[in-house]
Amino acid sequence: MRKLLRRMFGYGSRTVPYPTEAFTPPAAFIGRPEADLDGCDRCGRCAAGCPAGSLSLVDEGLQLDLGSCIFCGECARICPEHIAMGKDFELAARGREELKVVFARG
């Protein structure tokens, strides 16, 4: 026990100082989907393939509902030309509607 305590004091601070400092997740981290619709032909495969039904084609472009998104990355696998999983995780909002993000058509 004494040995363990001595070692634990030797570790120093292991606390990640978020939010006092910005946090950069590891390179592989799957954050929220990002879309660039330049050249998108609105085939709709991304929306059809989303397991949570979070993507839908709207007049303005492509709507992503972060409130139902399960961050699985299927959309990026279905359409790597236009969709990639980003690194953003600070996604909390006060209103439900704020979670609906629209990517403007290209």
Partner: peptide, 9 residues
């Protein structure tokens, strides 16, 4: 407030 994620980190 709503926190997106599955699960959120």
């Amino acid at each position: 407030a709503y926190i997106p994620g599955c699960p959120p980190r």
